[in-house]
Amino acid sequence: MQSLISNIIQQVDQIVLGKDQQVRLSLACLFAEGHLLIEDLPGMGKTTLAHCLAKVLGLKFERVQFTSDLLPADILGVAIFEREQGVFKFHPGPVFTQVLLADEINRSSPKTQSALLEAMEEGQVTIEGKSRPLPKPFFVIATQNPLSQSGTFPLPESQLDRFLMRISLGYPSPASERMLFEGVDPRARIRQLTPIVTHEQLSAIQAAVHQVKASDSLLDYVQRLVAFTRSDTQFAYGLSPRGALALLRAAKAWALIHNREYLVPEDVQTVLPAVVGHRVRGRGHSQDSEPLVKHLRDSVNVLG
């Protein structure tokens, strides 16, 4: 399994250049059965990463470009009257897939954003009173532009909470950018990618995440972290139990990627910004949660 994981990482790394950490984080997110939110400026490789992940994992991939006039039916599907048969027939939308890339999700109205809620949480959609299960596995990889950009609707907290991780890619290093210039177009290379993971193998990896052990000492640390967000004055509100569980699950996936059967505090600290960053908000007006997460990490004693 370990060689398989490193194989996947290697494949993705070849296309998304110089973004080792982000690639591993997004893989950890998928292994932990969580949805991923990638936040960055346009053109930073968000879509490439998402597409690449889907392809390598051998999953059915759909992409929805969110616009301000996008309606829920456009994502979920719609029932159309078939004149010959005299019945309404359901035409499934793009959500019926395994990896859904919701591009620029914050460009659409909240109504459309919330259409994704049920799909993300329950793994099913309900249209016209009928629940329809989504295929398994089901990942949403959403990208969004920074909120400061014009024409964006901020995602509500409830929806943000449904993403296991939020990462940003950032500008590439000069060396990787040079390689990008010199190399073949990434899109062409994605097309050439072949799946290297079967469906069963992916399930096995996801099951292995749950087998990673968290000792009492480590759980103490996680609890201290959570308690700090709830008591410290810089936080407007603390982490929910779901947030705490998410932190633990993401850290386990991270430990698995690094071939460990047990958690160490470093795992928690590494996934901390990605998991906690979009779940907390400071008391000030700043939307940027990075200093807040850093404050959290630096203030809580690792050893008790």
Binding site: V264, P265, Q269, R297, D298, S299, V300, N301, V302
Partner: peptide, 10 residues
């Protein structure tokens, strides 16, 4: 001195 948020390994 170990900083508060520093793991032993770090």
């Amino acid at each position: 001195r170990r900083k508060t948020g520093e793991t032993l390994g770090d």
